[in-house]
Amino acid sequence: MSVERSGVRVGGGRAAERTALAWNRSALAVGTTGGLLVKAGADEGSLLTGLLAGATLLALALAVWLYGRGAYRRADSGRAGLFAPSVAHAGLTAISVATGLLAAVIVV
């Protein structure tokens, strides 16, 4: 995971680590939103929907964390990842949009 630019070999280095940490924070945000949906579901009288949404989001948070962790290790070793970045980014976007839809359903 390095390129030649102006004769200097540039690796992922700390940039990869910062990116892994950013994935980590994103996983925490997904998990926290899941917990909040459980609470919102319980308050709005749709506990089952809230529990399902929360459990799904917690599982997805674990997947996001694992992807970020793997991405950092891949950057270090130069191996190809399980998913292309565009697939991972599209997946995270889909998770966020689906979370929004679920939250809207629970709230209404």
Binding site: V30, E44, A103, I106
Partner: peptide
């Protein structure tokens, strides 16, 4: 994306 998730969480928190 985290900002977007925070807004969604804020909406859910406002409702709750």
């Amino acid at each position: 994306n985290r900002t977007a998730l925070s807004l969604i969480a804020a909406g859910a928190a406002a409702a709750a």
